[in-house]
Amino acid sequence: MVQGEIASRQNHSGNNVVFQVSGLTKVYRMGEFEVHALRGVDMELYAGELVVLLGPSGSGKSTLLNILGGLDTASGGQVSYLGISLTQAGDRELTEYRRAHVGFVFQFYNLIPSLTARENVAVVTEIAKDPMTPEEALALVGLTERLDHFPAQLSGGEQQRVAIARAISKNPKVLLCDEPTGALDSGTGIVVLEALDKVNRELGTATVIITHNVDIAGMADRVINLSDGRISQVTVNTEKKSPQDLHW
């Protein structure tokens, strides 16, 4: 149902807005305390753009990403994806939404240890509507040679690239990356960022990267700074840097 609605909006919607967020709040209950992770966030995400969400830990950036990705629900405010409200969706709808529209990349890769690189991608392509082949997805991240290796046989950077291939293989509208280089050294990190940049450019996937690493902001179209649950600053990069030119 939501699926069909989203599909028709995709076809007929004139504007380029992928996410429309307004007045978003999130309150966690931690024992006897209430933690206000988000205190009223308003933002938009446009098709094809690469956004870096910057902020110190506890600023609410992961919470925001989880809500955008349908992993968590908001306490207040509105989030809509291609004009469809995510705030009203139940577990079944959110599962369907993640299955069809969102690609995730995590700090700790979250690969299935019992499946090879190719099969880890196939985990997604098997249930997606119009996916690319696992081989195509892995070629995009430069892993043509490592198709039949198990996670235990891959380096950290390679594992993360498999995760990226897995995320993009369904041709998602959005790619959400939570600290994708957080567990990697800088050299490997840059290879991973190159893969993300390439996907963004070649497939036009709207990409959100969470990081607390200011240097990564250089490769973004827009940089959104979060602090204390609110957007403190939005910067538009007039000159995007290539990941090779980043240093940290």
Binding site: G69, D91, T95, V102, F106, N110, P113, V123, I127, R166
Partner: peptide
Amino acid sequence: SRELSSLRVLGYTRGE
């Protein structure tokens, strides 16, 4: 649980 949660995140249903 980590593996299964990852699959849930990737869009697998509870049944799957």
